[in-house]
Write a protein that binds this DNA or RNA. Sequence first.
DNA 1: GACAGTGTGTTGGATATTCAACAAACAGTT
DNA 2: AACTGTTTGTTGAATATCCAACACACTGTC
Lengths: 185, 185
Amino acid sequence: MSDKLDRRKKYTRMVLKDSLIQLMNEKTFSSITVKEVCSRADINRSTFYTHFTDVLDLLYSIEAEIIEEMNKSLNAFNFAKEEESIQMTEKLLEYIKERKEIFEALLENNTGTSFEKRVMDIARRCVMNRALTANIDAASYLSTFMVSGAINVIKDWLFNDQKQSPKQMAELISQFTNKGIGSVN
Amino acid sequence: MSDKLDRRKKYTRMVLKDSLIQLMNEKTFSSITVKEVCSRADINRSTFYTHFTDVLDLLYSIEAEIIEEMNKSLNAFNFAKEEESIQMTEKLLEYIKERKEIFEALLENNTGTSFEKRVMDIARRCVMNRALTANIDAASYLSTFMVSGAINVIKDWLFNDQKQSPKQMAELISQFTNKGIGSVN
DNA sequence: GACAGTGTGTTGGATATTCAACAAACAGTT
DNA sequence: AACTGTTTGTTGAATATCCAACACACTGTC
């Protein structure tokens, strides 16, 4: 998209995001203040407000970044050969695992909506984005929704289990679908 | 000193210094360009010139930072108890070791002046600074010059040997002086 | 020698960030 | 209820950085 952002803007947003992710690893989302995020990022508080309205807004922008990243992964996945797909699923799982606390924060901040619904919402938005881009055929469109088939397994692994490595998980999931996370082929 | 620098200035100088140190680990000092330093630091080249005149100037500012750090170490060292001194020497040696490439660059860039002379020059400047601050007695003043007694041992360790750990070196040096790196006590 | 390619300093206007200050909302204390 | 301390948005002027452009010097190549 608008990839021609000023160096300063890029940097400011990056450190603010990093700062929030760090803090989410240390305390609950609702206890994190704007002041705290800024002081850790070493960014003036007034600058924060030129980019984001509040901490939740910042969180959403991180989420948007994740969605973009998942989009790329899913896109690449659908066009990958079968033997590469397990490896790609593994990478996607690693990516999700690293951002576990963000999903937790989104969950915490959306009381009423379940974790599954929330993740599916993100997945749906991925599909929307992908549908808008060209060269998306019906098969790959459908395959994205197949992710939901594995979502409960992933959730369990993410928040309860974690006994398997991302690699092992990727292989496990590939047994349930015919191609990694899910594709109708 | 002027510790009330603008956040932006602090950041800019920091990343430029880091960038140069990184590059010095990869190639010779004289082959490093301003453009290169800036591009790695993700800082506009014109901004570079508002802080430093050229790459050598940047290097000197790193050196100045080191000198300041050595000053602190030496000051603390002179007022430390005997049993703490070896430990402090060890820390100082670790600090020097981490910045080995800077000394090399300074050496490379001062053909004609030997390594020993160069280090002694730095040491002298430390002493000058310390002499300007209050509460420096003759003993601690003198002790700084005692560093030179161990300088050849350190040099050998730094550029040839490196078989001993900083801890072992600190103990070794303490055998040659009566208190760590050197103090008349 | 003409030429293309690259790094150097420098400039001016556009843009982003800082800083200090403010009023307002809120939580906890006495 | 008054008080203290903290966070929140917001403002305006000061400051720093960015960016694009420029002339210049240097290097290697045809």
